[in-house]
Structure formats: structure tokens, C-alpha cells
């Protein structure tokens, strides 16, 4: 197996009429990788105040055909989920990520709601997950895989409900990466990071956009913004 590898690397070096990079040059490139400097970020996503950030996130997510409902407190989430299911004529059954934040919600207030915890299986209609972060720039959710957040919940069910705290909404992808690196330093790099912008779609037939190609047909975002004074996070 090493022969093709050496040949390809050798061909690249021959093309540039050099050998492997000298330690100094390689060190410089490695330092850049470690520092991962930011490239210019569009004005739209540069240093937004919290209120503007939330407004942009909601507008962009809705433009991408996600639906967003805003709540004042996490305690209101179970009722909002139950109400959403009823409104959409969906069965009162969800499969939920075994995530501590979601577990801590007052689900007992919705006794008619059946909840299974764990990954999604074929036939699951509705999933409920947390988000790792959300990106205002394009209304994008950032979801990471892990024991408490199985990825199948993001793709198999027809309806995906995501709970996002207002303080999780950042302006740009770059801010999301920084949060990811900080989390990975503690828990290791996740197998998968999904950046999700609206529900699944295709335009492969006559360029007609249809939602729900293979992934969720509906993406419902519950944005929970504790009405706190700025600076208290």
C-alpha cells in the first residue's frame, strides 16, 4: 500500500522541483494549522449584537424553510412540542436525544406525549434534539454526534424538532468552529458535525424545489431566549 503513496507524494515534489518540505517550512505550515487564522468574514456575520444575531438567525432559517418558534423559558418546551405535534396532526410520539438538557425539562406536564430515548429507527416520525450551536449568518444549526446526540435523529424522521438556546446562536461559522474546538479539547473530536440549514430538499427534477428528499420534510426550531439583561450569560 505504501508504493502508490510514495509515488504520489514524489510526483507532487517533482512537479515543484523540490523534496519534502524542509523542517522550517513545514513548521510554519503546522503553526498556521494550529492557529487556524480567520479569513475575512462577511459584514453580515461580523460582531452582531445579540438581538441582531437572533433576528438574522430566525430570518435566514425561515428563508431556508425551517419554522422557528420562540419561547421565553426552557420549561415551556414540552408544551410547545406537544402543541406543535397537535397542530401538525402528528402522533404524540417522539424519539428524543438522551441529552441532559432535554432530560431536565418538565416532560411530566405532557402526560400524553410518548417519549423514547436513543437513536432513531426506521418508522420514527418525529425526533427532538438539542443543538450544539446555531449560526446566524445563514440560519444554520450546528449538530454534533455523541453518545447523547445520535446523528440518526437528524436524518431519519420526517420531522426534526431542535431546541436552541438563544445564547447558543453565534454570528458566523468561524465562531461555531471555535466552540467546537473548545468542546473537543474536553470530550474529543466528534465523529460528525452536521450543519443543517432548513429541511431536506432536491431540485433534481426540472429544477423544481421539493422539500423532504431523503432527510426530514420539516425542520422546526424552538428558540429559547431567556429574557436576561445583556452580559449575563
Amino acid at each position: 500500500m505504501s508504493e502508490p503513496r510514495e509515488e504520489i507524494l514524489g510526483a507532487i515534489r517533482r512537479a515543484f522541483k523540490r523534496g519534502a518540505l524542509a523542517a522550517e517550512a513545514a513548521g510554519e505550515l503546522s503553526r498556521r494549522l494550529a492557529a487556524h487564522p480567520r479569513n475575512p468574514v462577511p459584514q453580515r456575520a461580523a460582531a452582531l449584537e445579540e438581538e441582531d444575531r437572533l433576528r438574522l438567525f430566525v430570518a435566514m432559517a425561515e428563508e431556508a424553510d425551517a419554522r422557528v418558534s420562540q419561547l421565553d423559558s426552557l420549561d415551556a418546551v414540552p408544551a410547545a412540542v406537544a402543541e406543535y405535534l397537535a397542530r401538525e396532526n402528528l402522533p404524540a410520539e417522539i424519539v428524543m436525544a438522551p441529552d441532559p438538557m432535554l432530560e431536565a425539562l418538565p416532560w411530566k406536564r405532557e402526560p400524553l406525549l410518548a417519549i423514547r430515548r436513543g437513536r432513531a429507527e426506521a418508522g420514527d416520525a418525529v425526533s427532538l434534539t438539542p443543538a450544539f450551536a446555531a449560526i446566524a449568518e445563514t440560519g444554520t444549526l450546528m449538530l454534533i454526534s455523541g453518545a447523547e446526540t445520535p446523528t440518526s435523529l437528524n436524518f431519519l424522521p420526517d420531522t426534526h424538532i431542535v431546541v436552541v438556546a438563544a445564547r447558543q446562536v453565534v454570528a458566523s461559522y468561524e465562531e461555531g468552529f471555535d466552540l467546537l474546538r473548545a468542546a473537543a479539547a474536553e470530550k474529543g473530536w466528534p465523529r460528525t458535525v452536521n450543519f443543517v440549514t432548513g429541511p431536506s430538499r432536491t431540485a433534481d427534477i426540472e429544477q423544481t424545489i421539493e422539500l423532504g428528499a431523503h432527510g426530514p420534510r420539516r425542520l422546526h426550531i424552538i428558540l429559547v431566549g431567556e429574557r436576561e439583561p445583556a452580559g449575563k450569560k
Partner: peptide
């Protein structure tokens, strides 16, 4: 599109 519906990073097998 502003951004595609799914942009996914994959790093190694399941943990």
C-alpha cells in the same frame, strides 16, 4: 442558495 441544506464534517468511525 445561501448555504446548502446539509454541510457535514466526518472524522473517523463511531466513537
Amino acid at each position: 442558495q445561501e448555504f446548502s441544506a446539509y454541510t457535514t464534517l466526518s472524522t473517523g468511525p463511531r466513537r
